[in-house]
């Protein structure tokens, strides 16, 4: 079996004045990777490139160890994909839409789909345009799960959803990876969801990957430091994304262990960062 369920090497794509450059991502089986970035950073483009819905300029994408263009059909049969705005026939019922969608999958399991409808509390006789945003997302997810995918690729699944549905989704994803051969790759700008269940985190900014690591390692080694503005010069060379006012400064420190050994930190306030903090300081201009 291949080493990585998803492997992206040197992926590039330009259109207009946007450029996705030299993207590298790898995800092993059994884990969840969160893909974080601001709107317009290149998350959706990267995902569409993986799905071969947009043609790449250069680079290599392998899913299940196979080329994503040459073995597109093989791959799509084993990938569950939910786009940011799932496409349905809005005036038709859930059941009608599913009858349409299931033809595209060799391994469609209708019994499983019916089971998921009950579990997600979806009324299949309702028209799509009568469903709430959360219900629509869950319908798309139920379709994505019903052909026994090994890899789930979700583009902003939690955006615009209330906390209850978001939490429900996290539960569904955790259940999915109870099978250690399965993985999830999901993009979000709501980092708290990824902070909970993500095993790995990849940050993207202006078309470039700026950090891709085990989440726990990041949250353990990186710290937010705050201090009096007059002291900022003492530490400047090791601070990332300094935010400064007349009275205080706040910045990110990458290797806190080394930082602690190098400086007297007794007058600084040290905090655990959130993934939001890390994104914010890493993408701050001037770094």
């Amino acid at each position: 079996m291949e080493d990585n369920i998803l492997e992206i090497r040197g992926l590039s794509k330009s259109y207009g004045d946007f450029r996705l450059s030299e993207v590298n991502i790898s995800l092993t089986r059994g884990y969840i990777m969160g893909f974080i970035g601001a709107n317009g950073a290149g998350k959706t483009t990267t995902i569409k490139l993986i799905m071969n819905m947009v043609k790449k300029d250069s680079g290599e994408i392998k899913v299940f160890g196979r080329d994503h263009v040459k073995d597109e059909l093989y791959i799509k049969n084993k990938v569950g994909y939910v786009s940011e705005q799932p496409v349905f026939y809005e005036n038709e019922t859930v059941a009608w839409n599913v009858n349409f969608a299931k033809k595209f999958y060799d391994r469609w399991d209708h019994a499983l789909f019916e089971e998921l409808l009950i579990k997600f509390k979806i009324d299949k006789f309702k028209k799509i345009n009568q469903l709430s945003k959360g219900m629509k997302m869950k319908t798309a997810l139920a379709i994505a799960l019903s052909h026994h995918p090994e890899l789930l690729i979700l583009d902003e699944p939690t955006s615009g959803l209330d906390p209850i549905v978001r939490d429900e989704l996290l539960g569904i994803l955790m259940e999915f990876i109870q099978d250690e051969n399965k993985s999830v790759f999901f993009s979000s700008h709501i980092t708290s969801d990824i902070e909970k269940i993500g095993d790995y985190v990849t940050f993207i900014d202006k078309g470039k990957i700026i950090l891709s690591e085990e989440k726990d390692t990041i949250l353990e080694e990186w710290k937010i430091v705050k201090g009096d503005a007059i002291q900022v010069d003492n530490y400047k060379q090791d601070l990332i994304g300094i935010e400064q006012t007349k009275s205080y400064f706040k910045a990110l420190v990458k290797d806190f262990h080394a930082f602690k050994a190098k400086y007297d930190i007794s007058s600084l306030v040290i905090e655990k960062p959130s993934l939001d903090d890390i994104l914010l300081h890493l993408t701050k201009k001037g770094n």
Partner: peptide, 17 residues
């Protein structure tokens, strides 16, 4: 490990460690 991760809604790697 995976069951506890699901119960607590915490990443698998954290429980593993």
């Amino acid at each position: 490990i995976r069951q506890l991760a699901q119960d607590l809604k915490i990443s698998v790697i954290t429980i593993k460690r």
